[in-house]
Design a protein around this nucleic acid. Structure first.
Lengths: 224, 224
DNA sequence: TTCAACACGTGAGAC
DNA sequence: TGTCTCACGTGTTGA
């Protein structure tokens, strides 16, 4: 109950890094007597709390060195300035990204789809008439496992027979300031040659695939 | 001495915003009796401390909302992630600024001087042969009063007679993400027509002025 | 059980 | 004087 007020106060308001780690009952061993158990536990507890405080205060010290033009140095002001700065920097990155890095113009959801009905790079026809190559560009806040999510989303686009309709040919990612710009090169897969001629599929619903793809990718975009 | 342990614990580890502001001895008035003075002071003290804690915890809550991909939500982890993010964003802004916004190539100190010996825009000769127009571009962390510092630095460049050698014709600043890009258009002033012909000054040390100017501006750049 | 994280009330320095 | 900020040890809770 606050019977012991530790000697080291270090309240010089200098906001310097160093702290305790001072002279103290070092190398404590667990007491065998039951009477000593409680003071020992109390000491361990207060010591753990001291270490926790030191860790947090160390982060404050780091923030104080990182943030420019800090007027007030107290914790609340440091946190407030930190929040302001993070928002400012985030906005700056997004703005400058919008100006400098737009590869393919996308909609307001940051999702852009480009497709062609021609022949792909290696000159090999995919077999799906009217839709053989899709290029997807999207830009969003980075998160772990994003690429996996995107690929799974692409693979989840399936036709009537439960067979995948699109395969990922190439993928590129570039992250700047926590935002990720992703490029996907996709290739529609030919419908299963179950009936009719092998080169048929004249009724292949390329537009439908695109709609499904866009809807599926949008789920990934708005997630979290 | 911890005789009263407040009722509201709110230790649901939910890291939600709301907190106390709860039922409590409201609308306390200062007691007249001396015996009540101390408990009253203690209450006011603990209450003030509670408000302070709430303010700080509110900042933590805000940080938890604006930081993406937070795995651990405890205070130390939030601060650590904040530090990481600020550094990441700052670097991103600097990099993208270096790529997109370089107006005049500068040295490693971010200071670039350009000068011409011709005639300035309005066709009026400054009178100083060989150095009539200086354009300065510099990029550094923004700070309040920076422009004033720069102008004073320019004005502090003086000749033998203690007279100013340079005047500021135009100044532009643009700040992005806390970094400021500054453009200064300077004009050397003619040396005082104390002796010789009025159009003389053939021995005007334009190079010396540039050296002094660069040295003076560098002081502003490395400050703080 | 121990451990980690938290809110609390309090003593004390700074302004 | 009073107010503000901080470090401290403690009680408590969930894992």
């Amino acid at each position: 109950m606050h019977l012991v007020q530790a000697g080291c106060r270090n309240t010089s308001r200098g906001y310097s890094m160093q702290n305790g780690l001072d002279r103290r009952l070092t190398s404590i061993t667990k007491p065998k007597l039951k009477a000593d158990a409680k003071p020992f536990a109390a000491f361990k507890h207060s010591e753990a709390e001291r270490i926790r405080r030191m860790r947090i205060n160390g982060q404050y010290a780091t923030l104080r060195t990182i943030l420019p033009n800090l007027i007030k140095m107290d914790k609340a002001s440091v946190l407030a300035e930190t929040i302001r700065r993070v928002r400012e920097l985030k906005k700056a990155v997004e703005e400058v990204e919008a100006v400098c890095c737009t590869v393919v113009p996308g909609g307001e959801d940051g999702l852009s789809l480009e497709y062609s009905g021609g022949v792909e790079e290696d000159g090999q026809d995919s077999g799906a008439a009217g839709l053989v190559f899709i290029k997807v560009a999207l830009s969003l806040e980075d998160r772990p496992g994003l690429m996996l999510e995107l690929i799974n989303a692409v693979k989840s686009v399936k036709g009537a027979g439960g067979v995948g309709l699109i395969r990922v040919v190439k993928a590129e990612m570039v992250t700047v300031g926590g935002r990720t710009k992703t490029l996907l090169w996709l290739q529609p897969m030919p419908p299963p040659a179950s009936s009719g001629s092998s080169s048929g599929s004249g009724d292949y619903d390329g537009e439908g695939v695109l709609v499904m793809l866009r809807r599926t990718l949008r789920v990934v975009l708005v997630k979290k």
